[in-house]
């Protein structure tokens, strides 16, 4: 997209893929997102971690537009998108996946992806054209499934798939939308250990130009994928840094890594 960014000189900073300023969300008196200033750089591999209930999913909901913030601003490639609907943000390349699968369980993998592609191409509002005639979308969906290793499951319905493959479909649907920014909310949640490798491979193979925000509890995945890590606790940013910095930070160990050991 913005090719100047790829010649990444550290002194000149291009507009962030996503930036939030003083982002705040409260449910009544309960502040779930507390003045979060956050930058997701172009093409980033950035992890957002934090204990249960820290507000990670809420942050994804705010950025994607599923929730409106109480105050603060969100921008995409330097353009303010705070007042845009979720659909408008998706059209601009901001795409999220869900911590809990949101797929059409009775439909095939192919059709789940095909629906997304049809919508992306602006054909899903067409009242007159039979859905089945949309061959280009199905072909593209099929090619995408081949790329991510789901071609053999293309015609199986979601409910017949092992959970790991359902999680891969969740990502495949997002990729069908040709995202510039991808927010992955715990892509490996609930996946049996044997299949976690599939998810990791899929994330590692994501095109380099996509900025990825990865929310994940599994530290093995986080440290393998992320170049930067932000730690969220009780709605605010505790610290941000490289994986090495995060790993040796005593605060993080206490609040997050420590807690997981006892949990």
């Amino acid at each position: 997209m913005t090719t100047p960014a790829s010649s990444a000189s550290p002194t000149v900073s291009p507009p962030a893929a996503v930036e939030t300023r003083k982002l705040r969300k409260s449910f009544g008196a309960f502040v779930v997102t507390d003045n979060v200033d956050f930058r997701l750089e172009q093409g980033a591999r950035h992890a957002l971690i934090g204990p249960n209930g820290a507000g990670k999913t809420t942050f994804v909901n705010l950025v994607s537009g599923a929730l409106q913030p109480t105050s603060g601003a969100i921008s995409l490639d330097g353009t303010d998108i705070t007042s845009l609907t979720q659909a408008q943000r998706v059209k601009r390349g901001l795409v999220r996946t869900f911590q809990i699968n949101q797929l059409f369980r009775k439909l095939s993998v192919l059709e789940n992806v095909g629906l997304a592609i049809t919508e992306r191409d602006g054909l899903a509002g067409n009242v007159w054209r039979p859905a089945g005639r949309n061959r280009a979308a199905l072909d593209e969906a099929y090619a995408l499934l081949e790329r991510v290793g789901l071609a053999a499951d293309a015609m199986r319905s979601i409910e017949d798939l092992p959970y790991g493959r359902q999680r891969m479909t969740e990502i495949a649907v997002a990729l069908g939308l040709k995202p510039n920014v991808l927010l992955l909310d715990e892509p490996a949640a609930g996946v049996p250990t044997g299949d976690v490798g599939l998810i990791i491979d899929l994330i590692e193979q994501l095109p380099a130009e996509i900025a990825v925000l990865l929310i994940e509890h599994d530290m093995a995945i986080v440290f393998r994928v992320a170049k930067r890590i932000t730690v969220l606790t009780e709605g605010h940013v505790l610290i941000e840094g490289t994986p090495a910095e995060i790993a040796r930070d005593p605060k993080v160990r206490e609040v997050y890594l420590g807690e997981r050991k006892t949990a």
């Binding site: 994607s64 537009g65 599923a66 609907t85 979720q86 659909a87 998706v90 059209k91 795409v95 999220r96 996946t97 869900f98 949101q102 797929l103 059409f104 629906l115 997304a116 919508e119 992306r120 899903a124 509002g125 649907v173 997002a174 069908g176 939308l177």
Partner: peptide, 9 residues
């Protein structure tokens, strides 16, 4: 939720 997420108005 899924429809919103694939950009359906």
């Amino acid at each position: 939720a899924r429809m919103h997420a694939i950009g359906t108005p």
